[in-house]
């Protein structure tokens, strides 16, 4: 058995002295694992850093075998954002979430393309663009798993304007008026996800609300069934952005960017 595909490295675990078992998200073959000889060595370790785009050849005698990857680096994503704590945390969170919830060897070309767009936004996007792309990516991931959110119209009234809440039970948008009596229990719908807010960037406040929104549904639909909490990398991203927001509020700075 042999195939060749492009993929993003999600994780690399040392195996033996110099090898590593590497998880890659490919376009045609989904999340796929394989052994990389020398993957934990000094010369190859930089290639298997999470987020890197690699050209991978997978070989095995039988399909059910772990198999071996021969990989060549195409793009070093992580190296470009090492200095930015929030972008690096978002990269780690995206890799950790994908590695846990996407079934192995099940093609998800849409998710691959969305991940490529996310990593491009992380490396080159403006400070208000990449947080919005990250939240859209998590929403896309939920949709790919069959738990997409419906944010087009109010679940109670059918209104398409003034949508500021999301029901934590149904994942559907709720208008300001209809949601007011239950405001404490509702999840906030950040501006850039509202029908009339498309194209808007995300401030730290929007990003925090977005992370709470998608985090709630990721935990409920993807992680609770696995009896696992959200990955530490995802939790760290949320707490990092929250702390930044708190600091900005203390300093009375409005519309603070995330990075």
């Amino acid at each position: 058995m042999e195939w060749r595909d492009e993929g993003f490295v999600l994780a690399a675990r040392p195996h033996g002295e110099g090898a590593a078992v590497v998880q890659i998200l490919t376009r045609e073959h989904g999340r796929h694992a394989g052994l990389v000889h020398g993957g934990a060595s000094r010369s190859k370790r930089a290639t298997v850093e999470p987020g890197n785009l690699v050209d991978a050849v997978w070989r095995a005698r039988l399909t059910e075998h772990l198999g071996r990857f021969t990989i060549e680096p195409s793009r070093h994503t992580a190296a470009q954002i090492m200095d930015d704590p929030a972008r690096l945390a978002a990269l780690s969170a995206a890799c950790a979430v994908t590695e846990t919830v996407i079934p192995e060897r099940e093609p998800h070309p849409g998710l691959f393309d969305a991940t490529a767009a996310l990593f491009a936004a992380l490396t080159h996007g403006d400070q208000e663009i990449w947080p919005a792309v990250y939240i859209q990516w998590e929403m896309g991931l939920l949709a790919e798993l069959g738990f997409g959110l419906d944010l087009q119209a109010c679940a109670a009234t059918g209104m398409t304007t003034e949508l500021v809440y999301v029901s934590p039970k149904t994942g559907r948008a709720v208008s300001r008026e209809a949601g007011a009596p239950y405001a404490e229990r509702m999840l906030a719908l950040p501006r850039f996800l509202q029908p009339d807010g498309r194209g808007h960037g995300a401030t730290a406040e929007d990003f925090t609300a977005g992370l709470r929104l998608t985090g709630h549904f990721l935990a409920r639909h993807a992680f609770d069934p696995l009896d696992r909490p959200l990955p530490p990398a995802r939790t760290r991203l949320e707490s990092l952005v929250s702390r930044k927001l708190d600091t900005a509020k203390d300093g009375d700075e409005k519309d603070t960017p995330v990075s």
Binding site: A46, E49, G51, M82, L88, R243
Partner: peptide, 15 residues
């Protein structure tokens, strides 16, 4: 180290 884990740790300590 100049790895994702190394730099994440450095950012955490900075914070």
């Amino acid at each position: 180290n100049a790895t994702v884990a190394g730099q994440t740790t450095a950012h955490y300590i900075t914070e």
